[in-house]
Amino acid sequence: MTDVPSTNEVNLDFDRENRTGLAEAVFCQSKSLQQLQDICAQILQADKPMLFTKLESDQFEQLQAGLPAGFLDYDLISQTAFHEPYQIRSTDLVAIVTGGSSDVPVAREASRTLQFYGHETLAIDDAGVAGLWRITERLDALRERKIVICIAGMDAALPTVLGGLIPASIIAVPTSVGYGMARNGETALHSLLVSCAPGLVVVNIDNGYGAACAAIRMLNGLAVTN
C-alpha cells in the first residue's frame, strides 16, 4: 500500500482499486473546506487519480484557490471534479439514456464517472415514453452497446420499455423528478423494483455515480472474460 499520512478526519484508501477495480471517490456533500483541502493534500502527496462527487460550485471555487492550476477538472452540471483521469479504455460499449432533460444532471454524473475511468459514452437525452418515437428511432444505436444506463423520474417507465427491446445489460436510475406522489423519486424506485422486464439492475435515487460504478464492474468483468 502507498504510505501516505492522514489527518484525524481524512484517511484515504488508495489501495481500493487494487482490491475492487474501483478507486475511492470523494463524496463532497457536507464536507468542510478544511477536510477537502486535507484530501487534496493527500492526493498530491500520493500522486493518485481521484474523483469528486456532489462538489458544489462554491466549494470548488474555495478549494481551487489553494490548488495548482488545472489540478481539478470541474463540471458544474454534474457537480463532479476529477484529478488525473485514466487513459481511454473504451469508446463504444456504454450508452446513457434519460427520460427527460430534467434527468440530465444525474446522467452527467454517470458519464463523468465513466469518463474519469476512461470509458466514453453515447448520450441520448429527453427520450421518455410520452413520445415513444424518441427512443424507438435510436434502438439500432442502443443495440450496439453492451451496457445501457437508463435514467428516469416520475413513473420511471423507460428502463422497463428498453428491457423489452434491447439485449444490453440495463442499469436503471430512478430520479427525484416529478410532482406530488412522485415522492422525490420513491415512486420511480418502487416502479423499477417491480419491473416486469427481467434482469434490470436498479440503483438508488439520483445515484448516477453508483450506476456508473455498476457499469465499470461489468466492463471489468468483460475484460477478464475476453
Rank of each mutant, 00 (worst) to 15 (best):
D47H: 04
D47K: 15
K48H: 11
K48F: 07
M50W: 08
M50C: 12
L51W: 12
L51I: 01
F52P: 02
F52H: 04
F52Q: 05
T53E: 00
T53N: 10
K54E: 08
E56P: 01
E56C: 02
E56D: 04
S57M: 13
D58M: 12
Q59E: 12
F60G: 00
F60D: 03
E61T: 12
E61Y: 07
E61H: 08
Q62E: 14
L63C: 07
L63W: 09
L63Q: 05
Q64H: 01
Q64W: 01
G66R: 02
G66H: 06
G66Y: 08
G66L: 06
G66V: 05
L67E: 12
L67P: 04
P68N: 12
A69P: 00
G70C: 04
G70T: 02
F71W: 13
F71H: 14
F71S: 06
L72Y: 05
D73L: 10
D73Q: 15
Y74A: 07
D75G: 08
D75A: 11
L76C: 01
L76T: 14
S78D: 05
Q79A: 15
A81R: 11
A81F: 09
A81Y: 12
A81M: 03
F82S: 14
F82Y: 14
H83W: 03
H83E: 05
E84I: 02
P85H: 03
P85I: 07
Y86P: 03
Y86A: 12
Q87N: 06
Q87L: 04
I88V: 14
I88L: 07
R89Y: 09
R89K: 14
S90Q: 08
S90V: 10
T91Q: 13
T91I: 04
D92V: 11
D92N: 15
D92Q: 15
D92A: 15
L93A: 11
A95M: 02
A95F: 06
I96P: 00
I96T: 07
V97M: 11
V97I: 10
V97N: 04
T98N: 13
T98Y: 10
G99Q: 11
G100D: 11
S102M: 10
S102F: 08
S102L: 12
V104E: 11
V104Y: 13
P105Y: 08
P105M: 05
P105A: 07
V106Y: 09
R108K: 11
A110Y: 06
A110F: 06
S111G: 15
R112L: 02
R112M: 14
R112H: 15
T113W: 08
T113M: 07
T113F: 09
L114N: 12
L114H: 10
Q115S: 14
Q115G: 06
F116E: 11
F116L: 04
